[in-house]
Simulated assay, not measured.
Amino acid sequence: MVTISDVAKAAGVSISTVSYALSGKRAITASTRTRIEAAIRELDYEPNAGARMLAGATTNILALSAPIHADGHLPTHMRFVTAVVDTARKHDYDVLLLATDDDVSGIRRVAASSLVDGVVAMGVKNHDERVDVVRRAALPAAFIGIPGEDGHSGDGVACVDLDFELAGRLAVTTLAEAGHRSIGVVGHPPTYLARGTGFVQRFNLGLEAEAAARGIRIAVVSPTLARGAAERAFDELLDASPEMTAVIFHCNEPVVESVLRRIRERGLDVPRDLSLFAACASYDTSHLVIPLDCIPLPLDLMCRIAVESALRQVRGADALGVELITPVTENRGSVARPRL
C-alpha cells in the first residue's frame, strides 16, 4: 500500500510538504507541486479520507441518510437516491448511502471516522434524532423534509420540501372549484402517521382546513400495502359515501394503480362518474391507465436544493433555514364538473 512517505520520497520533498500540497494550508512553489502531483499519479496514491479531514481538506464524499421502511415504495425511494447522486456528481462529489432503518447509527459512524464532508437526510420525521446527531458532530447537513413539531421551523437545520400544507389546500380547492362537494381521500398507510412522518400530517392539516372552510365533506381511507387492501379500501369509500363525486390520491403509485383497476372493474367512467386527482405525485401520472390531474412532487428540485445547501455549508457558508416549494397543478383530463 502506497503511503504519503512514499510520495515524499519519490518527489524528493518532506512528508509535511506533501501534506501541505494536499491540504492547501500553506503555499508551495509551482515546481514542487508539479513534482508531488507527478509522484501521486505515478504511484497511484489515494490519501486517506480521515487524514485529509484532519489536515483541513475535504473528502469529496456526502452521506445520504435514506432509511428504508417496509411500508415504503422502493422505486420512489431510489428516485430520491438517484437525484441526490446526480446532483452530487455535478459538483465532483461521491455519495455514501446509509440505508438501514436505524436513522442515526450510520451518521454517527461516518461522523466519527471523518469519512464524509456532510450529510443529506431523507425520510424525515417530526422528531428526527438525526438533527441532534449532525449538530453534535458539527457536520454540514441538509434535510429533504422538515423536522420539528410545528412543520415550519426545521429545528434550526437546513431543509427543503414541497409546501404540503398548501398542497392539501390546493387539492381541495381544485375539486371544489369544479363543483365537487363530497370528496374521498386515499391516503398513505397508518404507519406513516404512527412514526411521525411530517409531510403526511402537513398535507392532512391543509386538506382538512380547506374542506372545513368550504363546507366540503371528506371521507378518508388509509390502506396498507397488503394484497387487495387498496381495492377493499376504495369499495368501503364508495359504500360509506355514495354521494362522493371525486377522489384525491395522496399515496404511493401501486395503491393508485390498484384503485384505478378497481374503478374500471366497477364500470365507473372518469371523469363523467368520478373525478380523480393525484396530490404530491412522485410518479408520472400521464402514464397511468387513467391519466390523472395532479400536483407533481418536485423531487429532482428538492434533492438538488438539499445537496447544494449541504455543499454551501461545507464551504463555510450559512445555509440554514426552511425552503418551501410552492405546489402547482397539471391537467390530464381527470377532473370535470359532477353530473347533477
Score class of each variant (00 low, 15 high):
Gly215Tyr: 12
Ile216Leu: 06
Ile216Thr: 15
Arg217Ile: 06
Ile218Asn: 10
Ile218Gln: 07
Ile218Cys: 08
Ile218Glu: 09
Ala219Ile: 02
Val220Phe: 13
Val221Thr: 08
Pro223Trp: 00
Pro223Arg: 01
Thr224Phe: 08
Thr224Ser: 14
Thr224Met: 04
Thr224Glu: 04
Leu225Tyr: 06
Ala226Pro: 01
Ala226Met: 00
Arg227Asp: 07
Arg227Val: 11
Gly228Thr: 11
Gly228Lys: 07
Ala229Ser: 13
Ala229Asp: 09
Ala229Tyr: 00
Glu231Phe: 00
Glu231Gln: 14
Glu231Gly: 08
Glu231Val: 13
Glu231Cys: 04
Ala233Val: 07
Phe234Arg: 04
Phe234Ala: 09
Phe234Met: 12
Phe234Trp: 04
Asp235Arg: 01
Asp235Ile: 01
Asp235Pro: 01
Glu236Trp: 01
Leu237Asp: 09
Leu237Trp: 03
Leu238Gln: 13
Leu238Glu: 07
Leu238Cys: 15
Asp239Gly: 03
Ala240Thr: 15
Ala240Pro: 04
Ser241Ile: 02
Ser241His: 04
Ser241Lys: 03
Met244Ala: 15
Thr245Cys: 05
Thr245Asp: 06
Thr245His: 13
Ala246Pro: 07
Ala246Gln: 05
Ala246His: 07
Val247Ile: 15
Val247Cys: 09
Ile248Asp: 10
Ile248Cys: 07
Ile248Ala: 14
Ile248Arg: 05
Ile248Pro: 09
Ile248Met: 11
Phe249Asp: 09
Phe249Ser: 09
His250Trp: 06
His250Asn: 11
Cys251Glu: 04
Cys251Gly: 11
Asn252Thr: 07
Asn252Ile: 04
Glu253Ala: 15
Glu253Arg: 15
Glu253Asn: 11
Val255Cys: 09
Val255Tyr: 00
Val255Trp: 02
Glu257Met: 11
Glu257Asp: 14
Ser258His: 02
Ser258Cys: 12
Val259Ser: 02
Val259Asn: 00
Leu260His: 11
Leu260Ile: 06
Leu260Tyr: 09
Arg261His: 13
Arg261Asn: 08
Arg261Val: 10
Arg261Leu: 15
Arg262Ile: 02
Arg262Tyr: 03
Ile263Tyr: 03
Ile263Met: 05
Glu265Gly: 01
Arg266Glu: 14
Arg266Ile: 03
Arg266Cys: 13
Gly267Trp: 13
Leu268Thr: 14
Leu268His: 05
Leu268Asp: 10
Asp269Glu: 08
Asp269Met: 03
Val270Tyr: 05
Asp273Ser: 11
Asp273Thr: 03
Asp273Trp: 04
Ser275Leu: 10
Ser275Phe: 12
Ser275Asn: 02
Leu276Ser: 11
Ala278Ser: 14
Ala278Trp: 05
Ala279Leu: 08
Ala279Lys: 08
Cys280His: 06
Ala281Asn: 07
Ala281Asp: 05
Ser282Ala: 14
Ser282Trp: 01
Tyr283Gln: 12
Asp284Arg: 09
Asp284Leu: 02
Asp284Ser: 04
Thr285Trp: 00
Ser286Leu: 03
Ser286Ile: 00
Ser286Trp: 01
Leu288Cys: 11
Leu288Asp: 04
Val289Ala: 15
Ile290Glu: 10
Ile290Ser: 06
Ile290Thr: 15
Pro291Asp: 14
Leu292Lys: 08
Asp293Tyr: 00
Asp293Cys: 15
Cys294Val: 03
Cys294Gln: 05
Ile295Asn: 05
Ile295Ser: 10
